[in-house]
Design a protein around this nucleic acid. Structure first.
Lengths: 350, 350
DNA sequence: GTTAGCACTCTCTCTTGTTGAGTGCTAACA
DNA sequence: TGTTAGCACTCAACAAGAGAGAGTGCTAAC
């Protein structure tokens, strides 16, 4: 059987309605909109059900769109419009004048996505094998402390106060910084193993105590860059979605969203550039098969770096979510500072 | 009427029981524990109710402790034991080898408090008038960017990538850093108004573009230190508490906890050093009068800096929460780096 | 002072009936 | 052949009612 124009129109109406109301749609509702009798619509609906686009919750209930219907809707029926002026302005404003720190930006991104969509949003950091140490530096602070700073190419900056075991002047610290840079600059964070740290420690024969604690701190720092982070926002939005607003389901959802590895699997699985839509069963992880997830990747230095995603009910507002995520990822990518490759010199780039 | 030994014992049993079960306690339950008939217990309970220590939920229900009873329990009846070895070890481990950044430590503290207590925890940053700029510094990163670093005396480190409008070598950056330090070091963050920034901008006549963006960045940075932060963890624990495990109440709670000013009022109102307990009506803010809140202050340089708190039902496990918060604040204070006053020189401190 | 007994109260759960929205099917109509 | 009116049927949701069970207060006896 083919999807004639009328069936198409009815299907679209049902989906549009259901996205808003979350209630099964009956034939009378549709009949009113097309000057046809409810009986005729019932016949059409029965056909659409047979073709796999609609389901009934129970024998005498109205119809609800199937996963197949949503997929069809996303591929063929819906129209993605630009974000409203207000919302676009709001987003611009959020990113305006903000730190260029990846972590802060990701947090902000998750928050913005969830605030505007009213769904749950996540943002995940880069895969470790893509992060490279850009610079290591010691800064004098006071009589007792120096500040250790480690910068990576994606603008991740880590710092740690280190206690000085003895007096040291600035030129001394500069020398040490230089030495540390020699060892660490350009190394991918994921590729620094204990052997490297040990080797570096051996390289500093004098002032062993201080250097040990320095190297330990760098190791700690690298370690924490090494663990990919997940930023989740708008978890509680789930409570406003009728399908999930009961304690048991909400709790399940919360504990699900806490599992970091699952979240990586959710947004990483395959990441072709651009916006990706996974509807229900299409999701790579079992636990999310009753949700829809819209993801997108962000880039630094034109390399794919990580992903962000919006998690909502299958009847989510796809057009809005898609233009939202597109817009936000654009802004995010623009604000991520692309640092040089650290090969030194003032090479022209951009 | 006086609280005789038996009444005391019964009251304690009722409170202990109710803390665990959250169910009104009937006379039979108590009677079994003291070889007395339920009728006798009923008489005692009626007395206790008359004295204001117990309430009935409805005419034929068992008894529930009143706010007065909890207060009495906290002041006279309970015994605060040391934290279990496991838990103490867990806390030690959490703080071991962690960054000395105030913000990260506060986040960690809230998380630890909520993880161990299974209630909701908050941690708030210092009041702005107590934070002083310790050091400002520019670090060369690559051909296009320098990293601006601002350190405050509580170990808050802020950084921001700044685009260079022209080539500049390290000694030039050092000179600029020195100048910035001259203007900002020692200033309380809260006391830097727009006039100061304007004045500093005027001080840099050459290279105006660059300095403007630098000063803007510092202003931005100071601004963001200027907004006190609240870190909340374990919000969802509310769902495990029977009294609050319904959608409406949970939502109310969530939106309540989002109101930053309320949270400040909640933990700041009066902060005598040490652990503070507010039971129900004793809470300084209206919205929290059905909860109990246990707070404690943490210090840097022996000055009170901010507070942390645990929010739970009035029937919370006070002994455990108290020893927990005590333990954690101790650990937190130990890990907060006390920086020198910035007056220069290698003055002996500690 | 303690206790057994009893009438009473209130919540909670289970059952039952009713209503209303929706269906599928059939037969008649244009 | 597509459309429609009509009708029997199904199911969820709600309300009302009946017990059961846990608890109380009070009284009278020990």
């Amino acid at each position: 059987m083919l999807l004639g124009d009328r069936k198409l129109a009815i299907l679209r109406t049902i989906i549009d309605d259901y996205i808003v109301t979350a209630e099964p749609i009956g034939s009378r509702t549709i009949a009113k909109k097309y000057e046809l009798s409810s009986a005729t619509i019932r016949n059409e609906m029965a056909d659409l059900e047979e073709m796999g686009y609609l389901r009934q919750v129970h024998t005498s209930s109205g119809r609800v769109p199937s996963d197949k219907a949503y997929r069809f809707y996303v591929d063929k029926l819906m129209q993605v419009n630009a974000l409203s002026g207000n919302e676009a302005a709001y987003i611009k404003d959020v990113y305006e004048k903000k730190s260029t720190q990846l972590e802060e930006l990701l947090m902000l991104t998750a928050k913005t996505l969830s605030d505007i969509s009213n769904y749950t949003a996540i943002a995940v950091g880069p895969k470790i094998d893509t992060v490279v140490v850009r610079s290591v530096r010691l800064i004098p602070i006071d009589a007792n402390y120096v500040l250790l700073i480690v910068v990576t190419d994606s603008g991740i900056v880590r710092d740690m106060m280190i206690r000085k075991p003895f007096d040291m002047d600035e030129s001394y610290l500069d020398k040490v910084s230089e030495k540390l840079n020699f060892y660490f600059r350009g190394r991918p964070v994921g590729g620094i193993g204990d052997d490297v740290f040990d080797q570096v420690k051996d390289g500093f024969l004098r002032d062993k105590v201080f250097f040990n604690s320095l190297v330990d701190a760098i190791s700690e720092t690298v370690e924490s860059s090494n663990t990919r982070k997940v930023y989740t926002e708008g978890l509680n939005n789930i409570l406003d979605i009728p399908e999930y607003s009961d304690i048991i389901k909400a709790k399940e959802f919360f504990s699900l969203m806490k599992k970091k590895q699952l979240m990586f699997d959710l947004v990483d699985s395959d990441m072709p550039q651009g916006v990706n839509i996974h509807i229900g069963d299409e999701n790579p992880i079992e636990e999310m098969k009753s949700f829809s997830v819209v993801t997108a990747t962000y880039c630094v230095n034109k390399k794919i770096y990580g992903s962000v995603g919006i998690i909502g009910p299958k009847r989510m507002n796809y057009p809005k979510v898609i233009s939202l995520i597109d817009n936000v990822v654009d802004e995010l990518t623009q604000h991520l500072v692309a640092l040089g490759d650290g090969s030194g010199g003032y090479d022209e780039e951009e």
